[in-house]
Design a protein around this nucleic acid. Structure first.
Length: 412
RNA sequence: GGACGGGUGGGUGAGUGGCUAAAACCAGCAGACUGUAAAUCUGCCGCUCCUUGCGGGCUACGGAGGUUCGAAUCCUCCCCCGUCCA
């Protein structure tokens, strides 16, 4: 690769800094970029991810997008799958010990992760590594030696451990090993830069220290802010249910993004789109002064994000559909069809159960009582309502705003 | 190994023999209002059956037994967590 491939240092730095929370240390990163330009050798930049869940959501993409930015600047993006460390479980941000994952779960998750990651990273240019490559065959002597390079007092400085200790919550000894073992990744990869979310800062700093202990130059660290979830309060996470998965259908994605608060829209713009900080600030000002309607700004946001994962056309359709169903309060243009044998007496609550999988009879009755159910366009709130479905034909059933199905009574 | 404290519904956490499907708060759901936003207000928030009733049955307070007409509450054993001592 020719040295000429790199853009001017300041331009690179500005691009890479956008949206970041912290760079440790910025002068070192700058130095590394200069060296790369001089030698023509791209920086080795990595992001380590534990495949603890089968799906990636927008929260994960914040830092992935940053890795992509490095890739865009001509550097080597390394996507490291922590298939070994996932079996320990990262204690970060956790208030109790996690149940360890099995090898099978980790492998299955790793596979789906990769497929999803390429929606953001350039597959051809990405170096994919697994930390089991080196950690699995690490002799116990080496582990002991590794542990000798770090002190307990420093380990206990980190917030997760300290607060658990204070609140008399359990900490397992193996959790202390997590940052040390993942530091071996940085050593093995000879990384120049490591990316992570802000909550990873402690781990990343340990990696830096251990690299130095092993005679390597310390990597620079670039952290990205945590993406707040759809509730606008807690971090986006699957277990909190406040997330948008990147494999979700365009319509669903669009709807979820529209449900965020106006406040939350701005960090989303910052962390999930390529709008420049200046453009975002301008838009924000326009919303403040009333020149731009917040709904319009939010639709633009949803459109841009959906486009990233599903393309322009799908995003346009999702927007139109959203407008139809939620703004105009009409039935969606496509509804799932549930076939039904003709029957003389069908309880409405039974049908509601068909519309919402996993709904118990008790909660179906609750929904009816609360006026959430419409049958063929008319609200029914009598729990005892029994319908005569002997004639073949289609009926629409709406449950709340979000669910609508077609009930198709079949011919005998 | 010893002494002591603790384990309650998705979360925090009250409850020390019946009035407890279990306070309160958070989260969640539905309705109203809107811009499917937020805020606010109202209601709901274990499962199931029906004649939908302040209805019947079942399940639930770490686990297994026991005492009792009746147990989240008392007893026994076990499991798990923490604190202090070593």
């Amino acid at each position: 690769m020719a040295a000429a491939a790199f853009k001017p240092i300041d331009e690179q730095l500005a691009y890479l800094k956008k949206g970041s929370a912290e760079i440790i240390r910025e002068d070192e990163l700058k130095q590394k970029l200069e060296n790369a330009a001089k030698t023509g050798k791209p920086l080795r930049v990595y992001l380590g991810v534990d495949p603890t869940a089968p799906d990636i959501h927008l929260g994960h993409t914040v830092v992935l997008r940053k890795l992509k930015h490095f890739q865009d600047m001509g550097h080597t993006a390394i996507f490291l799958i922590g298939d070994f460390s996932a079996m320990i479980g990262d204690p970060t941000g956790v208030s109790e010990t996690r149940p360890p994952l099995t090898r099978e779960q980790v492998d299955a998750n790793a596979r789906t992760y990769l497929a999803q990651v390429y929606k953001i990273l350039d597959k051809e240019k990405t170096e994919v590594r697994y930390n089991s490559e080196w950690l699995e065959k690490m002799p116990s002597q080496d582990i002991v030696r590794l542990c000798g390079h770090y002190r307990l007092a420093r380990m206990l400085e980190r917030e997760d451990f300290r607060s658990r200790l204070e609140n008399n919550h359990p900490i397992s000894v193996h959790e202390l090993l997590y940052p040390l073992l993942t530091a071996c990744d940085a050593v093995a990869l000879k990384s120049d830069v490591e990316l992570g979310a802000t909550e990873q800062k402690f781990n990343l700093l340990v990696h830096r220290d251990i690299q130095r202990e092993y005679g390597l130059p310390s990597q620079a660290i670039l952290t990205m802010p945590i993406l707040v979830g759809l509730d606008g309060e807690r971090k986006m996470s699957k277990s909190l249910g406040n997330y948008v998965g990147i494999t979700e259908a365009p319509g669903e994605m669009f709807g979820k993004l529209m449900s965020i608060s106006d406040q939350t829209m701005w960090p989303y713009y910052e962390l999930l789109t390529d709008f420049s900080s200046r453009d975002i600030a301008r838009m924000r000002e326009e919303v403040r002064t009333g020149a731009l309607h917040p709904k319009k700004a939010k639709m633009e946001l949803a459109h841009v994000i959906v486009t990233q994962f599903h393309g322009e056309e799908a995003a346009r359709r999702a927007a139109a559909e959203w407008d139809l169903v939620f703004s105009k309060r009409q039935l969606p243009s496509e509804m799932a069809v549930v076939p039904l044998e003709p029957a003389a007496k069908v309880k409405l609550s039974t049908l509601v159960g068909l519309a919402q999988a996993g709904t118990s009879r008790a909660s179906a009755e609750r929904l009816i009582k609360q006026g959430a159910v419409e049958w063929d366009g008319a609200r029914i709130d009598e729990v005892t309502r029994v319908l005569d479905l002997t004639e073949p034909g289609d009926h629409t059933l709406r449950v709340g705003k979000k669910t609508a199905i077609t009930i198709r009574v079949e011919k005998k």
